[in-house]
Simulated assay, not measured.
Amino acid sequence: MNWTALLINLGASLVAVAVVMALTMAYALRRGEQSIVDTVWGLGFAVVAAVSFFLSAGEGDGLQRWVTLALTAVWGVRLGAYIYARNRGKGEDPRYAALLRHNQGKLVPYVIRTIYWPQGAIMWVVSLPVQVAMYVAEPIPALLWAGVAVWAIGFAFEAVGDAQLASFKRDPANAGRLMDRGLWAWTRHPNYFGDSVVWTGLFLLACSHWVGLLSIVGPALMTHMLVNKSGKALLERRMSRKRGPEYAAYVARTSGFFPRPPRRGTA
Rank of each mutant, 00 (worst) to 15 (best):
R260F: 03
M225W: 12
G89Q: 03
R78E: 01
A149H: 10
W145V: 00
P219H: 11
R65C: 02
P262C: 03
N2K: 09
L107W: 07
P109A: 15
G265D: 07
F155N: 03
L213T: 02
V148H: 08
A185Y: 10
A248S: 01
L63D: 07
S208L: 10
A137H: 07
M21H: 11
A121R: 13
T266N: 01
Y247E: 01
W186L: 05
H224S: 13
Q34S: 10
Y250V: 00
D93T: 15
D180H: 06
I140D: 06
R86D: 08
L202H: 08
M1K: 08
Y84W: 15
M25R: 14
L63P: 05
A185F: 09
A73K: 05
W117S: 07
V148I: 13
E158C: 01
M25P: 02
L143H: 03
T72F: 13
G120H: 07
G244S: 01
A173R: 14
A97I: 02
V136P: 12
S215F: 01
T266R: 12
L235C: 03
A121E: 08
M225S: 03
Y247Q: 00
F54I: 02
D38K: 13
R170I: 04
D195H: 08
A49T: 14
N9P: 08
N87F: 08
Y247M: 01
R238H: 07
R243P: 00
V108F: 06
L14D: 03
S208F: 09
D61N: 11
L165Q: 09
L202S: 02
P141H: 03
I122N: 11
A146T: 09
A5I: 14
V126Y: 15
H224G: 11
T72N: 10
S215N: 03
G76A: 07
G60Q: 02
V47N: 03
S52A: 15
L107T: 07
E246K: 03
T114H: 15
G182P: 06
A16G: 12
G76W: 05
H189P: 04
W41F: 10
K242R: 15
L55S: 03
K242W: 00
L214D: 04
V211L: 13
D195R: 12
L226G: 02
M179S: 00
A133W: 07
S255H: 01
L14V: 06
H224C: 09
V160A: 06
L128C: 12
L213A: 11
L14Y: 14
L29C: 10
A252Y: 03
A5D: 12
I83Y: 10
R86V: 01
P219G: 08
L234Y: 05
T39M: 11
F157A: 04
V211H: 02
R88D: 12
D162A: 07
A49F: 12
A185K: 04
G201K: 05
G91V: 02
A152I: 04
R95A: 09
V150R: 01
L165A: 09
A185T: 05
D93C: 06
V198Y: 04
A156Y: 08
L165I: 10
L165Y: 04
V160C: 04
Y116M: 13
G244K: 14
V74I: 15
K229T: 13
D171L: 09
H224D: 07
F45L: 14
R237M: 08
T187Y: 09
L143V: 01
V227W: 13
P94A: 08
D180S: 02
M222D: 04
L79W: 05
M1L: 15
W151Y: 13
D38W: 09
